[in-house]
Amino acid sequence: MLSTVSPRVADPNVRTALVETAARLLAEQEGLTIRRLAHEVGTSTMAVYTHFGSMEDLRRAVRLEGFARLAAHLDAVERSRDPVADLSALGWAYCFNALANPNLYRVMFLEAPIDAEEAESGGATFAPVVAAVQRCIDAGRFTSCDAWSLAVQTWTMVHGMVGVVLAGVFGPDEMLGHLSTMTVSLYVGNGDSRAAAVRSLARARRRMEPHAPIKRSDGAAEFERPRIQNAAP
């Protein structure tokens, strides 16, 4: 009589732990190996291969997880009647994702060039920004730009500020203060009035502040209302 062996089932909790630990090792340049990853997670090397066929697949999975979490943050921004506030809220969501997932963020953009599959996932997270800018143009708020160009300017502004925060140059409060100032200047430079830009940014701030990540004593991120002192009113 032949015995039936159940196929190995990949535990999603183990997969998440493997991805997050791999992201930390890559971001901290600690040297990522299958054996070390398995040891740090407290599992076997076979478990790593059960989830990821190779080291290349593992690195790709880390980046794709980073883009998936970014997409989730952006998708959570609901559309309102103020398209400029919505665009600003997307910028805040981008920042909050990076602060909540700093290791994944570093691997997404700083560890190595992305491949075609990763570029497709990254492009999907950029599409909402382009669409939000187009709504601002259609509403007559921005008059001296095209949607793609201003979306690129917006993304690079936020991305650059996140980079200096993750490098420890600024704290999150300082980041949001400087980012608010730059955002108003960018909007005004593309046709919005300063008063309207400040009002929209204030609306975005009220919507997004309750979801800002702060650090607990154990170093993990949680979502609570921070004390943001330098943001534009």
Score class of each variant (00 low, 15 high):
P113H: 07
P172S: 05
Y94T: 08
A127F: 06
E20P: 00
L176R: 01
A89C: 09
A127D: 12
G122D: 10
G160T: 02
V129R: 11
R194I: 09
C145P: 00
S80K: 11
V184Q: 02
T16I: 11
H178A: 13
P128T: 08
E28P: 02
H178N: 07
D115Q: 09
A47C: 10
V129T: 15
P102K: 09
R207L: 08
R15G: 00
Y105N: 07
G191R: 09
F223N: 05
A202I: 04
S6L: 13
E117N: 07
R135Y: 02
R203C: 07
C145G: 01
G42M: 03
T4D: 14
V198M: 10
V19S: 02
P113R: 09
F126M: 13
E118W: 09
R207K: 09
G53N: 08
L90V: 04
T181F: 06
A196G: 15
A202T: 15
A38L: 08
S3E: 15
H51P: 01
D218K: 09
P213C: 10
A10R: 15
V107A: 01
G160M: 03
V152R: 12
N13Y: 08
M182A: 14
A124E: 14
A22R: 06
V165P: 01
A202Y: 07
R35D: 10
D57A: 15
M46L: 07
S44H: 13
S44F: 04
L201C: 05
L166Y: 04
V62Y: 08
A212Y: 00
F170N: 10
T125H: 01
S180Q: 00
G171E: 11
L201W: 11
G53I: 11
G160R: 01
K215W: 01
R15L: 06
E118G: 08
S180C: 11
G31C: 03
A197F: 10
A147L: 02
V107Y: 00
G53S: 11
N97W: 09
Y94L: 03
F67A: 12
N230P: 00
L166I: 08
T154Q: 12
E222A: 10
A61W: 07
V198S: 01
A124L: 10
I114N: 08
A127P: 00
L99F: 14
L87P: 06
D82Y: 11
A38S: 10
V165S: 03
V188R: 06
M55A: 10
R225D: 07
H73T: 01
V158D: 01
T154I: 02
A139E: 09
I228Q: 01
G219I: 12
S180G: 15
V188S: 02
T183Q: 02
A38T: 06
M46D: 09
P233E: 11
P102E: 09
L32F: 05
G140T: 13
A98L: 04
D138M: 07
W148R: 15
Q229N: 05
A27Y: 03
L32Y: 02
V184G: 08
V165R: 02
S88F: 09
A22P: 03
N97C: 13
